[in-house]
């Protein structure tokens, strides 16, 4: 038996308190409407019920929206990854002319509060005729989402040892080859991070998918469906908790899948 790491003594209780609200949300999904409020903070429902899930499935239109959400999120992630990795590489490694200006511009756009820039975006997409499919929504989501990933890739590539690239160049590898075969695989931690956060954002996205599918409501995503629980006068907490619980499963799965990339960086690669 190995000696128990003393850190566990701190981490275990901390994590239990830490995730309490999440646990409450999941347990609320199994509580009756009465118990949600009268039962207060207890984590175990007195009577287990699946009514919330049935109602949530209907109200948020899971059946109709799930596949849209998958397509929308995956496409968005792919576009963001492709564009931001190449741009981040060019800015982080290369001696691109006007690099400083571009980085300055990127940082500038970070500080416009988002949300209400939706009106110009909408007018643009409407003008381009992209407003009847998910592609418009994907472009509108992926477009502004690029800045953060570009900066992340830039920072990451900038920190990589120069020897790696030099070695590859001496071997006569072409520029795209160096990028796709050597640099990108090494940037796995950032790829994982960017994929995770953009997947989450796209999965939960509400405003853009709503606005871009007005003409074809059958193309909506779950983020839109989730908002149906908020009424003018009352919120359906049980239904919301149930829907949130279902729709979080893929995100947690993605997290578990991607988290390996946060610990497998260039650490091993440098030596070989």
């Amino acid at each position: 038996m190995r000696r128990l790491n003393p850190w566990h003594l701190l981490l275990v209780p901390l994590c239990l308190v830490w995730i309490y609200p999440f646990v409450w949300m999941v347990s609320t999904a199994f509580k009756s409407e009465r118990e949600v409020f009268l039962g207060g903070l207890s984590v175990l429902p007195d009577e287990w019920t699946f009514d919330n899930f049935v109602r949530a499935w209907d109200t948020a239109h899971f059946g109709a929206y799930l596949s849209n959400t998958v397509v929308f999120s995956v496409t968005t992630v792919i576009i963001v990854l492709l564009v931001s990795a190449t741009a981040g590489y060019a800015l982080g490694r290369g001696s691109l002319p006007g690099k400083k200006v571009i980085v300055g511009l990127l940082i500038t756009t970070m500080f416009i509060p988002h949300g209400y820039t939706i009106i110009p975006i909408f007018k643009l997409v409407d003008g381009l005729g992209l407003n009847t499919g998910l592609l418009g929504a994907v472009l509108a989501t992926a477009g502004p989402a690029h800045v953060v990933p570009i900066l992340l890739f830039m920072g990451y590539f900038a920190g990589m040892p120069q020897e790696l690239e030099d070695a590859a160049r001496i071997d006569g590898a072409s520029y795209p080859r160096i990028f796709f075969r050597i640099m990108l695989p090494l940037a796995k931690p950032v790829v994982g991070t960017v994929a995770l956060f953009n997947f989450m954002a796209a999965w939960n996205a509400f405003f853009i998918p709503l606005v871009f599918t007005l003409g074809r409501p059958e193309l909506r995503t779950l983020g839109v469906g989730m908002y149906s629980f908020f009424g003018q006068e009352a919120t359906d907490w049980g239904g919301l908790a149930a829907a949130a619980t279902i729709s979080l499963l893929p995100i947690i799965a993605i997290f578990l899948f991607l988290q390996r990339t946060f610990v497998e960086g260039i650490a091993g690669a440098v030596k070989s």
């Binding site: 981490l11 994590c15 830490w18 995730i19 309490y20 609200p21 999440f22 409450w24 949300m25 609320t28 207060g40 903070l41 989450m200 989730m226 908020f230 919120t235 907490w237 919301l240 908790a241 949130a244 979080l248 995100i251 947690i252 997290f255 578990l256 988290q259 946060f262």
Partner: peptide
């Protein structure tokens, strides 16, 4: 790996639900 997931869970917890849990 488990700890990382647990520390990450608040990020994915629905904000509206957080509002009500903390209020209670």
């Amino acid at each position: 790996n488990l700890y990382r997931l647990l520390l990450f869970l608040p990020v994915v917890t629905t904000t509206a639900v957080i509002g009500i849990v903390f209020a209670i």
